[in-house]
């Protein structure tokens, strides 16, 4: 696991049914591109988050492929429509096979 990878998400706690809500996510990750060299001229191996997904009550909301040019601490902001109360689950996939996830509940009235 890449050191210091820590997911953060911001989801409103409540919303009205059918509302479009804004979700913000960020994971701290160095996103080493694989294009850089160290002091001895050796290539520093690529180590990035390569995929990010968000699901709501088991239904996929967004599925993103990340490429090496994306900078440190990738941040996503997107909108989602929430028809009912439930839970968002967020998952980040690391090149080294690590998977980071976090979840947030939302109450729809």
């Amino acid at each position: 696991m890449a050191s210091g990878a820590k997911p953060r998400v911001k989801v409103p706690k409540t919303a009205a049914a059918g509302d479009t809500i804004t979700i913000k996510t960020l994971i701290s990750h160095k996103m080493e591109s694989g294009q850089r060299k160290d002091d001895d001229g050796n290539i520093i191996p690529r180590s990035i988050i390569n995929r990010f997904t968000a699901d709501f009550n088991g239904q996929n909301v967004i599925d993103v492929t990340l490429e090496p040019a994306i900078s440190t601490n990738p941040y996503f902001q997107f909108d989602a429509v929430v028809p009912e109360s439930g839970e968002f689950t967020f998952t980040w996939y690391d090149d080294d096979g690590s998977v980071y996830d976090t979840a947030k509940k939302i109450t729809v009235s």
Partner: peptide, 12 residues
């Protein structure tokens, strides 16, 4: 604070 990248330093 969520948008402020300086807060990552605060969390560290």
């Amino acid at each position: 604070d969520f948008d402020n990248p300086g807060m990552i330093g605060v969390e560290n």
